[in-house]
Amino acid sequence: MSVIEMKLEREVTADTIKIEARKVQVHYGQNHALKDVDVDILAKTVTAFIGPSGCGKSTFLRCLNRMNDTVASAKVTGSILLDGADIYDPRVDPVQLRAKVGMVFQKPNPFPKSIYDNVAYGPKIHGLTRSKAELDEVVESCLRKAALWNEVKDRLQSPGTGLSGGQQQRLCIARAIATSPEVLLMDEPCSALDPIATAQVEELIDELRSQFSVVIVTHSMQQAARVSQRTAFFHLGNLVEYGETGTIFTNPKDPRTESYITGRIG
């Protein structure tokens, strides 16, 4: 492979900004959880948030689809623009927003419904399909994108909770992408999975990048290094460093980043 090709491989396909966050601050009551975070999340890019527990990375992730609205004590200030539009504008319906900015959680949490209904739920409530045939198509294509179709196509009516952990997580990903989101937020999506299921989810993340912006919070630095093109390091509520993943892992600028990724501070 030539030098030029290798460079292209690493390059981000689109340099358009999908989410622009400026001076984002979050307070949980007295606790100042996030301090003046400025970051541009690029379109069609996997962005990893890393940092020790309590550094604010999950808090920030939850700001991106207003999940913090559900926490009574949380106060979010600053601006977060999705395609240039403020997501904290009072006219924005958070439910509609979350259809555009989907989320996958640490523990697979399928609905106590059939595999089919788990995926069909979002398109149904948002009225995205007009017929049963169209819904069938959406379910199949999402399960295929989540690399789960071949394993479940003969038992779509079985309960989603009966699947293995890795399959459940891929089902949750299929569910999250069923509403055709533009951004997919993943909060430690692999921490409950074995290495094979983890590899499958990582492969999936890489494929999803051609259609979505993916933002992943992970405690595994190797995972961040493997799947992302951009990495942001959070520490004590500050965004310490944000840049190209290869640079962050080989030659970080900030000594706090260096200490964290080399295993010197927890």
């Binding site: 630095m221 190797q222 290094a225 892992f249 080989t250 030659n251 970080p252 260096e258 990724i261 080399t262």
Partner: peptide, 9 residues
């Protein structure tokens, strides 16, 4: 150990 940054260097 999957060394990174200075450790890798």
């Amino acid at each position: 150990r999957a060394p990174a940054a200075t450790d890798l260097r």
